[in-house]
């Protein structure tokens, strides 16, 4: 298979950046999208050019490193998949593929397709945890948890922090990411003591990082490789209001 790859090139944070076009040949349908990019990079190195920088690591859809807009879609055309899980059989021979980095004020471009997603880490640091130290915890079976609650927690906890929800959202909102953590911990008894404070501090951190507000567009759910439901955003809103109406909430 042959493709024309139109890809974003940007030297560093301050460079203006531009689109560049390259041709790749000899691609097989079983190759992953990133293996196609590897081949492009090998080709560029041989030609004396610098390869296209992109984040990737596990290449099996779980680490959340890879992040490309392919033809305007976060993580490309496949539903419930990360960029590394997209295979070239999803495209037609001869296609022109436009590859861009995540676009959001809170995710500045570092180089080419690599963006700075440390804002997500700071949102988690603002309260996305259960405040227990190591040791002295009760037996794992001391607190029975109804299976439905556990399943709900797990549905939310699957978030891999890739940022596709932000990239897909016209407002560059990170509400799906945020609600996944609030929803995960809020569904479990262990998360209850800090529930009201958590939602408050995390929403504040989200806003501080420059993510936009949610206007119920739903692009995030469609782009999410783990197919996390926007129901968690509803839950987040409910928790936020409850927290706001509570008399005393730390944080």
């Amino acid at each position: 298979m042959k493709f024309t790859i139109k890809v974003w090139r940007q030297k560093n944070r301050t460079d203006a950046g531009r689109m560049a076009e390259y041709a790749v040949d000899g691609i097989t349908p079983d190759m992953s999208f990133l293996e196609m990019m590897d081949q492009l990079n090998e080709q560029l190195i041989k030609a004396g050019e610098e390869p296209v920088a992109f984040d990737h690591d596990c290449r099996e859809g779980i680490c959340g490193s890879c992040n490309m807009m392919i033809n305007g879609q976060a993580h490309g055309p496949e539903r419930g998949a990360t960029t590394c899980q997209v295979h070239m059989r999803s495209f037609r021979d001869g296609d022109r593929l436009v590859v861009e980095p995540w676009r959001a004020a809170a995710f500045p471009v570092i180089r080419d397709l690599v963006v700075d997603r440390s804002a997500f880490d700071r949102v988690i640091q603002s309260g996305g945890f259960v405040g227990v130290n190591t040791g002295g915890t009760p037996d794992g079976n001391a607190v029975p948890i109804p299976k439905v609650d556990q399943d709900r927690a797990m549905d939310a906890a699957q978030c891999i922090g890739c940022g596709a929800c932000v990239a897909a959202c016209p407002n560059a909102s990170a509400m799906l990411f945020l609600s996944a953590k609030v929803g995960h911990l809020g569904a479990l008894p262990q998360g209850q003591p800090e529930r009201k404070a958590r939602v408050k501090t995390m929403v504040a951190a989200h806003d501080r990082e420059g993510f936009g507000h949610c206007t119920n567009i739903g692009e995030c759910e469609a782009a999410c490789p783990k197919e996390i439901s926007t129901e968690f955003i509803m839950q987040l809103n409910r928790d936020y209001i409850t927290s706001a109406l509570s008399a005393v909430v730390r944080g």
Partner: peptide
């Protein structure tokens, strides 16, 4: 297991 359950790790349950 106790530590992780206390942190909110959603282990599978019956």
């Amino acid at each position: 297991i106790d530590q992780c359950a206390a942190q909110g790790v959603p282990f599978a349950r019956e």
